[in-house]
């Protein structure tokens, strides 16, 4: 048994055990509880629902690793979506061509990056608390969005946009492919690049990182820019999935992304945590949602169960930490 555990840790890392156990528990429980659970339909719906939340979670993950937080991700996504929507509308609305879409997407990513840039600069140069900086950015972006849209939604996009939200390539949903690409990029970035290395070092002690010659300000700014860009990608997917943009779309995801990060073993103070366990945690959350749905529960009950799951995981972690101490 110990050898098995050691091999598991060697292959996946010790931080994967929790999320995998939760995954197994969810599959087994709902597999028995509902005959429709272990079917393609469940996995299909999970595959389409996962990406928005997943990419937003990546946008949240990066700042958390530096010991911060980005509460502006959902409204950054909305504003980025709006940017794309207007580019399409000014270029013919439903008749806009792929060039307009491409231009709009680039602009959307730029807007997302700009929101991150402002936050990153303020955080890096003034040392203001990231929660406050991103919170005021969130209030600002929400206000900006509501001001520009007057609370309404914008729709009427060319037909070719829809597959980004609904289409499949070789049976794999396009949004899921985008998510997987983002996960891979983030994973490599964090585990192999200098930026990723510096992110972890800054997260656990920014001053010691600075003394070792890491350009802490540059890293912080880049992390928030990346976070903004990730949020913008989520915004583009949301536009395609709903075929409209509305300020406030996905607002309820905000705290769920934080929950998913903690569930995936990210240290709330920063410095520790990997992308893959967070990805598995996201899958668990979505499977839980689908399973509860099959049992007749609605999204609200699911939200409550997600919260309970986070508490249970944290309590189990506390138990295992105390237990290990006693055994030693």
């Amino acid at each position: 048994m110990n050898a098995l555990a050691a091999r598991f840790n060697a292959i996946f890392g010790a931080d994967m055990a929790g999320p995998f156990a939760a995954l197994a528990a969810v599959l087994i429980f709902f597999g028995f509880a509902s005959p429709q659970f272990l079917t393609g339909a469940t996995f299909g719906s999970v595959a389409f629902q996962l990406p928005e939340l997943g990419i937003l979670t990546l946008a949240m993950l990066l700042p958390i690793l530096t010991g911060g937080l980005n509460l502006a991700i959902t409204f950054t996504a909305n504003i980025a979506g709006l940017t794309l929507a207007w580019t399409l509308q000014t270029n013919g609305g439903a008749d806009a061509g792929p060039a307009a879409f491409l231009l709009g997407s680039v602009l959307a990513l730029a807007v997302g990056g700009a929101s991150g840039l402002v936050m990153g600069l303020v955080i890096a140069f003034t040392r203001a608390h990231p929660i406050l900086v991103s919170l005021s950015m969130m209030i600002f972006l929400r206000g900006l969005g509501e001001f520009l849209t007057r609370g309404g939604d914008i729709s009427g996009f060319p037909a070719f946009v829809s597959p980004i939200g609904h289409g499949s390539i070789f049976g794999i949903p396009v949004p899921l492919l985008i998510l997987i690409a983002c996960v891979i990029v983030c994973h490599i970035l964090l585990s192999r690049s200098k930026l990723g290395f510096s992110t972890y070092m800054i997260g656990s002690n920014i001053e010691s990182a600075r003394y070792s010659g890491i350009n802490t300000r540059k890293v912080l700014v880049l992390v928030y820019v990346l976070s903004g860009v990730m949020a913008a990608i989520a915004g583009i997917i949301m536009l395609a999935r709903f075929n409209s943009v509305r300020v406030g779309h996905g607002e309820s995801y905000l705290l769920i992304t934080v929950l998913a990060c903690f569930l995936g073993g990210i240290n709330p103070f920063g410095g520790f945590g990997r992308v893959l366990p967070v990805f598995v945690a996201l899958v668990v959350l979505q499977l839980l949602s689908s399973g509860l749905n099959l049992l007749g529960a609605n999204q609200h009950l699911t939200t409550a169960v997600w919260g309970i799951l986070l508490i249970v995981v944290m309590v189990l972690r506390w138990f295992s930490a105390t237990f290990v101490k006693i055994v030693k």
Binding site: M201, S212, G213
Partner: peptide, 19 residues
Amino acid sequence: SLGLNQPQSIADNLVMASL
């Protein structure tokens, strides 16, 4: 608090200045 990054690993601390 300045010389080493206490929570991080031996290896990461050692390579921190020479990435």
